[in-house]
Write a protein that binds this DNA or RNA. Structure first.
Lengths: 120, 120
DNA sequence: TACAAGTATAGACTATACTCTATACCTTAA
DNA sequence: TTAAGGTATAGAGTATAGTCTATACTTGTA
């Protein structure tokens, strides 16, 4: 698919998709048979990558962290140990964030309970 | 305490503290008896507010969301219903983020398991 | 009293993640 | 074939959240 369809499929604007492509987060392929243009084609794996990007962004990863994560994921130059330790680090970070979320949530719910009782 | 001590107590730089004060996230008081300067004093409640800011930032709230949250929290102009619905909305957002974190974590752990088995 | 260190204010600068504009070229349907 | 709409590239502009610099005034200690 071309960039327009990719944009519609993912809900990400064309501008942002090009921005991601410049950063190396996604990669389209040009058709070797067509020499007249430089139109890039994007397949289903690109759609998947964008879904990963969207999810990872929502939970607080920066674009460069996401690039690092995906490069590690899809790379064959890293050793198993490198990949494992990178992912373990990320999982630990996620656990930490979940813990912080729970604390804030508890705090908010505590205040809500007090309000309900008219103690505020 | 003055801004230097506040900075040391909270681990937030003086520059950032002034930035927060400009945004209305914290508020120091000037001593009425001292007319020669405009030095601001910060009490323990300011330290607490900064701890709230730090926590909320870590779980992905923007500074303006935090300001809104704290204004609602400390305000007496909002009705109970307003405060409750604001907090309920935030708790729902947190639940959503925790869910997303779990998904990403599961994804990462799935890959790690595959790597462990040598399936990658 | 001199001077180093602290404080306040304003404004410039930076990084991240877009978002938009200009320009130019390509494709396709009427 | 021409005009509308799609695509690529470069670069400018925006918002958020700092971070730094310059300037000027204040305070406390030697």
């Amino acid at each position: 698919m071309l960039i327009n369809e990719l944009s519609k499929r993912t809900g990400v604007t064309i501008h942002t998709l090009r921005y991601y492509e410049n950063l190396g987060l996604i990669q389209g392929t040009t058709d070797e048979n067509v020499k007249t243009n430089n139109y890039r084609n994007y397949d289903e794996t690109v759609v998947e990558r964008i879904e990963i990007i969207k999810g990872a962004k929502e939970v607080g990863f920066t674009l460069s962290e996401i690039r690092e994560l995906m490069n590690t994921w899809f790379s064959s130059t890293s050793t198993q140990e490198e990949v494992l330790s990178f992912f373990e680090k990320k999982v630990a970070e996620i656990d930490d964030k979940i813990k912080k979320f729970r604390q804030i949530k508890k705090l908010l719910e505590g205040v809500m309970k007090d309000i309900g009782k008219g103690e505020c």
